[in-house]
Design a protein around this nucleic acid. Sequence first.
DNA 1: AGCACGCCGACT
DNA 2: GTCGGCGTGCTC
Length: 800
Amino acid sequence: MQIVSVIVDVPTMNTDKLFDYLVPEKWINFIRPGMRVSVPFGPRMIQGFVLEQKDHSDVEKLKYIHEPLDISPVLNEELLNLGKWLSEKVLCLKISAYQAMLPAAMKAKYEKVFHRLDGGTNPFLDELFGNKDELRWDVAKNNNSLPVLQEQIKNGTVEIKYLVKNKANKKTVRMITSLLSNDELLTALKNLSPNALKQKLVLEYFLTSTKSIPVKKVLEDTNSTTATIRSLINKGYLKEENKEEYRDPYEHRQFQKTTPFQLTMEQQKVITPIIKSIEENYHETFLLNGVTGSGKTEIYLQSIQKVINKGKEAIVLVPEIALTPQMVERFKSRFGNDVAVLHSGLSIGEKYDEWRKIQRKEAKVVVGARSAIFAPFENIGIIIIDEEHENSYKQEENPRYHARDVAIYRGELHQCPVILGSATPSLESFARSQKGIYTLLSMKKRMNNQALPSVSIVDMREELREGNRSMFSRELFEKLQDRINKNQQTVLFLNRRGHSSFVMCRDCGYVLQCPHCDISLTFHRYSNQMKCHYCGYESIVPTQCPECLSEHIRYFGTGTQKVEEELNKLLPEARVIRMDVDTTSRKGSHERLLQQFQDGKADILLGTQMIAKGLDFPNITLVGVLSADTMLHLPDFRSSEKTFQLLTQVSGRAGRHQLAGEVVIQTYTPEHYSIELAGAQDYDQFYNREMMMRKLGSYPPFYFITLITVIHEDLMKVVSITEKITKYLQAKLSNDTIILGPTTSPIPRIKNRYRYQCLLKYKREPELNKHLRYLLEHYQQQITSEGLTISIDVNPYIMM
DNA sequence: AGCACGCCGACT
DNA sequence: GTCGGCGTGCTC
């Protein structure tokens, strides 16, 4: 007797445990841990993951596994353990953790069908089923036949079958193979009936080409029909078979092979310790801090080459928005078909194929977004996270994991180096490098010794005072005109996030802040109040600036569209390409717009977030940041850090080649350190300043934080539950732990459900997860039956 | 999540 | 006295 323990695909807390099943005789030792199986669960049939094998169970009435869904395990032992670790660390369901590791194509799709059992003897059923003996549930439902069918089920003439399917499947191509040698073909040709002209053509075709050809191609090339092929198959000359094929998203692209570049002194120095840890098989986390254009990618490429030479595999994570064709090309042109690519632009089927290349060891390198950290490699030699400070490495839904944590966990397990690369490392990572947890590797020079662009910061309050009410400062406008005259290109960057949610004085730049939290107050339109999302402080919306008594105090924000209109008015001769969510929603439009810009079809590229990275065009000599402040005043303790990173990032777009670059940053708060220091491109100084702020505010990296959000349609319930949770935690956690809340969330209501939150700041709480789990269990009933949501985000990046 | 079981109101 | 509403609880 063989028994397996299974995690079932039912995403609730009460089913988040192992269920035991008997393995049918014929599958003993075939069904193994890591495989997906379909199992009877109550009256239905569902998908599950086999976690363990055993020969005894404490449960009396075991059911049998219905059938395996894979021919070999899709999760290896490491990933099975990783899933367990992950679910404990981020407090998610085990099933969610495992599903996050696999391509979406493998997620189960359930179908219900009615199956007739009368053997066609009941004419009444003919009406319902037609000439088939199966009827899909949704079809029956649309025909209003459910009540009748229910009756038939009672009679025993119809049963319900539950099907477990994949979301997407392997793509197959029908192939025609010749079973004859050339000599035999010639004989066969002679024996053909003289009027079988098409058959003759097909056999002749196989004389001159390879033995196995897709049906479609045979038909096209010989201008014959399936009937011809069929008769040749019947004569035993040809054979038809299905061949599995990969969908290749880069099928029509040519990749010019590149060879390693000669490294600069600085690069050489940096790569040495990385190579050492690859060669000597030990884990070390490196923080590779190199200015924009310092050649980090070449370091990655040469390190990966070493890893491949050792017969091991490499994982490279890149932020979703930076995963452009240009980026992929750099890897594909160095490592060719050894590279698999995983990103959100691919279809479910394409992702599935790329994943299978990895699993079958046909790929050695995976380049992908966040979830690629779960690539099913078994012999990892290096893990690289490029632009490590990017927020997109944190998943903002369950499982709320950070790819960096998973990377380091896997790196330790495989005893291989982990490289975190960035021009502007996250404070957390840089602090760890200062403490010696990560090894800091710095590159301060650009590869071609090109100087960093010169940055000028324009005080927009001054502009206003001098009567310039336009969104362009005089300096930026002059430079814009100059570039158009010189036929050089400009990138204009506008940050749309934080749109009119904060209130600022246009005269002095004063922004309303919470007196207790040093965080900007958020404007609430419906209640017409200013609120702090961290402690709940409220105040009225001022009509006068509290600092300078000016009346020019208002909500802040401008859209790209408005800027475009303005540009058309002021510089009608300028050709503008606008890139934002509106103009890039269609597939491929992102790439197309960039291509147009690269081809010189526009003078100005105007855009949001998405143009901050990866742009590397020689003709860009001017970068303008229209309003550096928008992000700065978001109600988020990381707003300064994000501002600094973004400004540095954007500035790095200018003057990467022969032509020198200039950057103009417009701001209402030029004295703010994140803007001033981004202008000076001084990371170290920024780090010191920001660390002081974090220390004062008891924020990371000095404290860990965890955010608990309670969501329900009944506001009273939300408030009272959040209060209870806060009280409970106050009683259980140490005195050094700071508990902020209950307070309303930055977005107090989404889809008619109210949101309240409680923020924990702590240095050491070894029992925290235990308490949080207790809370989840305690409210489990209300979660399942009353639509209550309690979201727990350990180390949140978006404070909503 | 689904689905069955089970206990109260509106109807034949 | 029955049909069906959806609250409650279970699924190896």
